[in-house]
Amino acid sequence: MVPPATFASYYGRPIVKTAPWERDIPAYLFLGGMAAGSSLLAAGADLRNLPELRRVARIGAFVGGAAGTAALIHDLGRPMRFLNMLRTAKPTSPMSVGTWVLAAYGPLASAAATAEIAAMMPRRLPIAGRVLALSARPAGVLAAALAPALAAYTGVLLSDTATPAWHAARRELPFVFAGSAAASAGGLAMVGTCLEQAAPARRMAVGGAVVALVMEARMERSMGLSAETLHAGTAKRLMNASRALTAGGAIGAAVFGVRNRRAAQVSGVALLAGSVCARFAIFEAGQQSARDPRYTVVPQRDRLQRAANA
């Protein structure tokens, strides 16, 4: 279908408003995803007795979750009122759902990471150390149980808006984000874990990268007109960088990362960077699609036309 060359607007001014969000939000999308993937890796490593992988993943999950939460609070217009998020629970609000998931996830991931850090201390804590060590596994497994929700809900968070590119991406975005989460968590673990224990992280990284790349390509085909916003300007540069870094990192992990620690670390960093770029690309594409009334008017006109023809 060739979209009409001209469309009417009010002096070319935007119709919908852009989200008032700054870099905090795409950064959170990345950090929360990395935390979620890391919690899954940590629980698996714990159950399979891979202590080095477990330690890196638990600490990664904690840092990602804490930094992501800080970014979310920083982005509020009234940060001191962040606890108002917990005065109600609304399934019609992906932000409410996500806040509750994060509120449950955060303490669990923190407990598991604190146990790791306590165990690394030169002096053992007598009672607290025992409690931490005993609670680490249940806390870590529960955090992993919440992790898939944490990784995927952010796709709904963006899609459940009138921002043309985000709403048009709703069928694929949760998959892109879940895949990106797995790739980044696998990448992080590859950076910090010895080769012998990093095999699950490599597999998770490669699998996540494949899902993210395939679903992103599919997303661009199903978005319609607003896919244009991923093919121009900053969003285009970021998405191209993300594709190259994610594909390169996955190939590096699968081919060289099995035997060469340095190669594994470079691949891991590439996967992390690829995930960051994907989040910022999709964020920026959405904002651009809201700034230009074309992406609001033309698809809606098409829809009316189709309804009239039917």
Binding site: A36, G37, L40, L41, G44, A45, L47, R48, L50, P91, T92, P94, A144, A147, P148, A149, A151, A152, Y153, G155, V156, S159, D160, T161, A162, H167, R170, R171, P174, F175, F177, A178, G179, A181, A182, A199, P200, A201, R203, M204, G207, G208, V211
Partner: peptide
């Protein structure tokens, strides 16, 4: 936009389940 929200939650549930299954598979031979 919330008219499509039930479908979006279903998509997210499948994506999350895929992630969980993928993580399990990653540990099969570990």
């Amino acid at each position: 936009t919330t008219r499509d929200l039930p479908a979006m939650w279903r998509t997210a549930a499948i994506a999350g389940a895929t992630l969980l299954a993928g993580a399990a598979v990653a540990f099969v031979r570990a």
